[in-house]
Write a protein that binds this DNA or RNA. Sequence first.
DNA 1: ATCTTTTATCGTAAAAATACGATTAATGTC
DNA 2: GACATTAATCGTATTTTTACGATAAAAGAT
Lengths: 114, 114
Amino acid sequence: MAQNKKEEFKKTEIELADFAKAISHPARVAILKAIAAKDMCICGEIVEVLPLAQSTVSQHLKELVNAGLIQGSIDGTKSCYCINWKIFDKFASGFNSFFNKAKTKAENSKAKCC
Amino acid sequence: MAQNKKEEFKKTEIELADFAKAISHPARVAILKAIAAKDMCICGEIVEVLPLAQSTVSQHLKELVNAGLIQGSIDGTKSCYCINWKIFDKFASGFNSFFNKAKTKAENSKAKCC
DNA sequence: ATCTTTTATCGTAAAAATACGATTAATGTC
DNA sequence: GACATTAATCGTATTTTTACGATAAAAGAT
């Protein structure tokens, strides 16, 4: 894109979009599911489950860490990841308030939809 | 990406990721908000509110239509868009079940997090 | 000390997303 | 019919994302 216009939007809109972007790839959804299911996951276990190269998985993990959704700690040669529930809840309520707000507003007007 | 591996994931994961991608840009969040607030919107009204060129807004509108989140109808020279609540609700419950499932699983195991 | 295992990072290639101006198409206005 | 308005589409440039192999770094095993 010639220029990045993203910063010209409202903070709440940017935040929700960033939240969404964090889980906008099936690999990252799958990673979150895998970690949540076992409460925590060794990196290698995740790599085994996904149809992607190790370096690619590492890349996706990094993005989830950057988004704050997961956190990792080193354990010997291995790397252990777990969900950051505080941020995860923030995500969940962010989506919820978006969906609910939209819905409420629409219900208060007579739906003369196109 | 050298190859597209997205189709190798589970259907539910792809679906959630696609949902997320649809609202992963602040422009599209802003568009949805604008339409929901007024129940329906002329394309030109949306263009006025956003810091983007008309053609770019049209592009974002098209993506939202493709995702099923909104639908448009032509009214003379103008174009009217409204939320497709059926799909919108599907989105909302998709996110909810993802967040809730993850949370429940985690609570059932002792959180010996990293 | 050497070799293996594990994971992060680097470099890079290919693809997708974002953004715009110009053009087109279709209707409305004079 | 000529001109204006509105919005979609086309072509294109730039940026970002996705993906991989190769390499590096750090700990474990022999």
